[in-house]
Amino acid sequence: MTTHVAEHPPAAARPTLRRRMAAAGWDRTTLLVVPAALFVLLLFIYPFIYGLILSFEPAKGGVFSNYATFFSDPYLYDTIGTTMWLALPATVLNMALAIPIAFRVRNLRWQRALTTILVIPITLGTVLVAEGLLTYLGPQGWLNRTLIELGLSSGPVRLTHNYWGVFLSLVITGFPFVFLLTLSYITGIDPALPAAAATLGAGPSRQFRHIFLPLLVPGLAIAFCLAFVQAYSVFPSAVLLGAPAGPTRVISIAAYQAAFEQYDYSMASAIAMIMAAVQLVVVVAVLAGRRLFYRGPMGSGKG
């Protein structure tokens, strides 16, 4: 695929530069990576480094004074826990929902239609979902009206402008993402494997425990990391659906306020760095756990 054999007859004993490059894995196809690499460099690495340096150049105080301020002020450092308390349960719930649903959907004939419906929340974006939830779950929304009409509740259930509003929006926007990843991992498992386990005496639950789960764990770990990072950086729904001054004052709100209310870009950068570090700790922990499991091909034999 990436070699150009016999393109030019060997003129001299010494191979041409192109051949030597090709032998080392560099040819014209490989060069196609360059624009993408530049893109990442310019739009990700550069701002990151810039922010990192900026966070060590506070308006006043020493090099680490931004970080010192953050970790000495509960109004700031509590946001780590607040965000974790939203992102972690929402991600766990999404995984717990996605696995059984993906198992069920895998065998359905109208899998594509269902998948499409489930993908819609991704395309809508968090703001639209938040607005929809605001009217649907609000005190005058359909949900509360129905509950009161049916006599299931005496007054409106508070599901907006608090923890639950943000939590629900994280579940709704995060689920399709986790679901699609999980579905692709499950359909990637050779159906002959559970069939073989069945002929050897394993019923459905033991097929899941001994065959599906060990093969799925590495993929599920990746899905968890991606979903968690997405949830941890929650911002619009925490503002729109939550109580941004209290129970849902997430870390991104703290960064926003530092940047655009106090105009302290250096402090905002420091908060962003702390946020990245927390995410990194969780991701590294999950990926380290993943190493304990089998991570080879999910097929069987040479098939």
Binding site: A192, A195, A196, T199, L200, G301, K302
Partner: peptide, 20 residues
């Protein structure tokens, strides 16, 4: 009966060995 209760051994075309 489901396959797990029949107790027949089966060899699959692609072997279906558990890769892990």
């Amino acid at each position: 009966l489901p396959p797990e209760r029949r107790g027949f051994g089966m060899v699959f075309q692609n072997y279906a060995l558990f890769p892990h």
